[in-house]
Design a protein around this nucleic acid. Structure first.
Lengths: 95, 95
DNA sequence: GTAATAATTAGATATCTGTCTAATTATCTA
DNA sequence: TAGATAATTAGACAGATATCTAATTATTAC
């Protein structure tokens, strides 16, 4: 996991909202964009950030690009956070 | 939890390193700063961001300010992330 | 009170980032 | 091939942010 890229990606509310929408299943760029009051160019910028962080995967379907969550990165991220718990610090755990 | 503040706070590598150091227990500002090649003024800036996000708590001890983790926020944050899992989506869960 | 130490705040600055408009690429259909 | 639609890329720009130096506040020790 590219930790820095992932944290940066999660730091923007629009991107978190995009991820939330993808929770229910894959969506095209247009379908996602319909929910936001920004241009498709700005949307593309956010998609790029999410892709660089490997939080989403893409697949072209005709004219459309379909986006879907890559849930393994969320797992990794959650693990990193839980790892910061002082109480649950396990001696042998890899940091 | 101030979600936006927390995510922003976590997006900087220096701040994540500060949190990591606090995992082992409370430390004074000076003790934390010894590990970083930035000025104490810059460190104070990072402390402020972490405090605003409620990720750390402070207490004055004489001349020193002692910092410690507020682990409940990490719990909340991890929960938010796990909540984004498509598979583990629980119907009744509060988002 | 004065000096020394710890830490913060104030103010400046360079870089990063989210947004926009305009132009470009890719695909579909007639 | 031409036109329409979907999406991205290029380039500009305003606002946010990480850093610095200098000044200030808080505490301790003499």
């Amino acid at each position: 996991m590219r930790q820095q890229e992932v944290f940066k990606a999660m730091a923007d509310p629009t991107r978190r909202a995009i991820l939330k929408r993808l929770q229910a299943g894959s969506l095209t760029a247009g379908e996602i964009g319909a929910a936001f009051a920004i241009t498709s160019a700005s949307l593309s910028h956010h998609f790029n950030v999410l892709k660089r962080a490997d939080l989403v995967r893409t697949e072209r379907r005709g004219q459309h690009i379909v986006y879907s969550l890559n849930s393994t990165v969320f797992e990794d991220l959650a693990r990193v956070l839980l790892d910061l718990f002082p109480s649950r610090n396990q001696p042998g755990a890899k940091s």
